[in-house]
């Protein structure tokens, strides 16, 4: 059991999202930084889709009421266990009674805490992800708060031995982590309605910086910068959107659609962020800046496959190390 001493800004249970129900209008949700989420799970021997805790900027304080193995991946939010700084992107052993806390955000916005054995909450529509707006999934459909007690899963005795070994050693897992930055260059494909935008807008999209407005959350990031406009006004028929679609409402300020995006939208989509670069966008904080670089679909899919291979290698590497 994990006892929440302080909830933090927004700590939610997330997995890789609610797949297969978008056709009923059900929002996908899931980890904003799927790479960090998956890696955290692998480092504690979980399946990569197991739920983790997603924390944002101001992290929670968590008391472990039983010994556990955890991994913290993603943003550097200055994690400490019993007051001692701990490393990210590796297996950590936590004693019964220890308290995990977070301090000042150094890089990025969201960190993921995976716990060996996973988080024991009931899946809704095959997913443990929290969808705050509808109050479903995760821990009673809401963010964690002081006093909550979060049940965690059991792990087999053999696994405990392996995890202990992994947490004792200073292993370099060679994790191909994204290069989080407060002004990243994010690779972008042309969106389905790219051609409807005037040439100035098309050009400015790939040459100028946009800043992340305070009106940004798990649903989407509203950007400020050059105004983007269509050659002529056009009414569009609502159609599907995806994680990382960039749509432009009539006011000309683009919005990046993220984990809690609606399933469909009627605004023109000027671009679509390459899947491998999504973490660079979702780790931005309000006030950070973002630039876009054009990439083709073929390049994006090649990068996607390369990253999947790297994750598979990491998985095998971790398993071998734990079995040594």
């Amino acid at each position: 059991m994990l006892k929440i001493i302080k909830g933090g800004l927004q700590t939610t249970v997330q997995d890789l999202g609610r797949t297969g129900f978008q056709k009923y209008g059900v929002i996908a949700s899931g980890a904003m930084d799927p790479f960090a989420h998956r890696t955290a799970n692998l480092l504690v021997g979980n399946a990569e889709q197991e739920a983790t805790l997603e924390i944002a900027l101001a992290g929670p304080a968590i008391e472990f009421q039983e010994p556990a193995f955890i991994a913290i991946c993603g943003a550097d939010l200055s994690p400490t266990i019993d007051g001692v700084s701990v490393k990210r992107w590796r297996t950590l052993s936590v004693n019964k009674g220890s308290v995990l806390k977070f301090g000042a955000p150094r890089t990025g916005c969201r960190a993921y805490i995976a716990i060996a054995g996973g988080i024991s909450v009931a899946p809704i529509m095959n997913s443990k992800s929290t969808y705050l707006r509808a109050g479903i999934g995760g821990f009673h459909g809401r963010a964690l708060d002081a006093g909550d007690e979060l049940p965690i899963g059991r792990i087999a005795d053999e696994a405990i031995e392996a995890l202990r070994k992994a947490s004792d050693q200073e292993v370099d897992w060679q994790i191909p982590a994204p290069r989080y930055s407060a002004e990243p260059i994010v690779r972008l494909m042309r969106g389905r309605q790219f051609d409807l935008f005037n040439s100035t807008s098309q050009q400015r999209l790939f040459t100028e910086a946009f800043s992340v407005s305070t009106d940004s959350d798990r649903m989407g990031y509203r950007l400020e910068g050059p105004q983007l406009s269509l050659t002529e006004p056009k009414e569009l028929i609502s159609e599907a959107v995806a994680f990382g679609s960039i749509q432009v409402p009539a006011d000309g300020n683009p919005i990046i659609l993220l984990a809690d995006r609606q399933t469909t939208g009627g605004y023109p989509k000027i671009g679509q962020i390459a899947s491998v670069d999504l973490p660079l966008a979702t780790q931005l904080k309000p006030g950070d800046r973002i630039r876009f670089k054009e990439i083709t679909l073929e390049e994006a899919q090649t990068l996607f496959i390369e990253q999947e291979q790297q994750i598979r290698q990491l998985k095998v590497g971790i398993r071998l190390k734990m079995e040594e």
Binding site: T19, F21, K23, I237, E239, A240, L297, Q301, F304
Partner: peptide, 22 residues
């Protein structure tokens, strides 16, 4: 196939690029 999102005049078909490319 991962999932579909049907709309008024379109069906978006989500797929796993590790299994098949565009």
């Amino acid at each position: 196939l991962i999932e579909t999102i049907p709309a008024f005049t379109t069906v978006a078909v989500f797929y796993d690029p590790a299994k098949a490319l565009y």
